[in-house]
Computed example of a mutant assay.
Amino acid sequence: MTGSGYGLISDAAIAIQDASVAWVGPRSNLPAEYADFSRRGLDGRLVTPGLIDCHTHIVHGGNRAREFEMRLEGASYEEIARAGGGRAGGGIVSTVSATREASEETLLKTALSRADALIAEGVTTIEVKSGYGLDRDTELKMLRVARAIAAQRPVRVLTSFLGAHAKPKEMDADTYIDTICLPTLQEAHAEGLVDAVDGFCEGIAFSPDQIARVFDKAVELGLPVKLHAEQLSNIGGTALAARYGALSADHVEYATETDAEALAQAGTVAVLLPGAYYAINETQAPPVDAFRKCGVPMAVGTDWNPGSSPLGSLLLAMNMSCTLFGLTPVEALAGTTRNAARALGLSDVGTIAPGQRADLAVWNAADPAELSYGIGINPLYSRIVAGREAP
């Protein structure tokens, strides 16, 4: 079954040596050098690369169920964010309070339960952001917890420093960047806690000029950047991401065709996050046709967070990307494998090919479209992580 856009091979064989794929192709063509390898039949099941959730906020304290109620009562996402503060209010700063109060042990326990939900759907790589501390100690605590997830679960975790996530109540944005965000990034990098640097470029968060100062520090430290851009309005975040050669620009609902051209030229991935679009009842969808026209790779993530996207299913995010944004199932699968890997700067996962890390998902399915088609259906049979069967 080839030529469908998935690159499917019927009656295939995959040879795994140590942690990597050694060979893949039709079983009838299996080279003699692999004849003595132990074999395991999968009874015609579908095998894909392990899924990759390239945008999550799964380390945090508390929840924002009350904020969900506020939205249903008529408050907008921006109104809730500006109210902020206490537990009765909403927005990122309400999660900041809960995260600051939570112990490292408590944060790890809840993060592991969220990671388990993603793992149960065939996810083998998860990106995890900080950004609910907005002070030195809590940001570092979040990043340590994110690192600890991979030590306790068979999953790869990449971290993003999101110090520029929201303006803290206690100081203005410029003072915060100079006195808290940049020094904390420097320290987190020195401790080996950071794989990439992120920011939230929006009217309710930070301006392009403010984010540029954070990105300049990232460049100085040799760290790649990514950006929450054009989620609620267009203030130039996507153009900024392209200018810095960002790994990804995420959300991008208000991006333009000019933005798409800039992303294409920069090689930046557009990460689509339908969970947030759905949860805050947005009506402006990302310019998918422009991304296609310009050749911008599109990834798909859950954006799992306690406020604007309490979505713990990457399979549902795939379905939403098709039904809400018009992606094809081929694009949705590429968006959670090959393009998601690219959005994280990874070249050793996301495809099944010789030399690639053997991170695989085995499905009780025959057609890859089933992964995007099902709503609340999980056809996972098993996962293989770095060449080993994993729960």
Rank of each mutant, 00 (worst) to 15 (best):
E230F: 05
I377C: 14
E261D: 13
V296M: 07
A290Y: 07
N29E: 15
D172V: 07
T337E: 04
A290V: 08
E69T: 15
Y373D: 04
C322D: 02
T175R: 11
E79V: 09
D259A: 09
R66I: 14
E230Y: 07
Y373K: 05
L30A: 10
Q210G: 07
E79C: 08
N63A: 14
N305Y: 03
A173L: 03
D18Y: 10
Y77L: 11
A366V: 13
G203T: 09
R136H: 13
L118T: 03
A13N: 04
G131Y: 01
C181W: 00
L344R: 06
T268H: 11
H189R: 15
V21H: 06
D216M: 12
A241R: 06
R342L: 13
S372P: 03
K167L: 11
C181V: 04
N378E: 05
K293E: 13
A12M: 00
V93P: 15
P286S: 10
D53C: 08
G44I: 01
Q152P: 12
L327R: 06
D198G: 09
I177T: 00
A249G: 11
R45C: 05
V271H: 09
P297S: 11
A353E: 13
I92R: 04
R114L: 10
L333Q: 00
F161E: 01
G374M: 09
S20Q: 13
S207W: 08
G376M: 05
L333I: 06
K226F: 09
P297T: 09
G222K: 04
A12Y: 00
L223M: 08
L182I: 14
L232E: 11
A32C: 13
L185M: 01
A81P: 09
L360Q: 00
S382C: 14
A266F: 06
G222N: 01
D36W: 12
P354Q: 08
C181R: 00
A249P: 08
T268R: 10
D135E: 06
G192V: 11
D303G: 04
E139N: 03
T2N: 15
V123R: 01
E191H: 13
G62D: 06
R100W: 04
G3M: 02
K167W: 06
A148L: 12
V145S: 03
A334N: 12
R153H: 08
Y176G: 00
G89F: 06
A19D: 15
A212F: 10
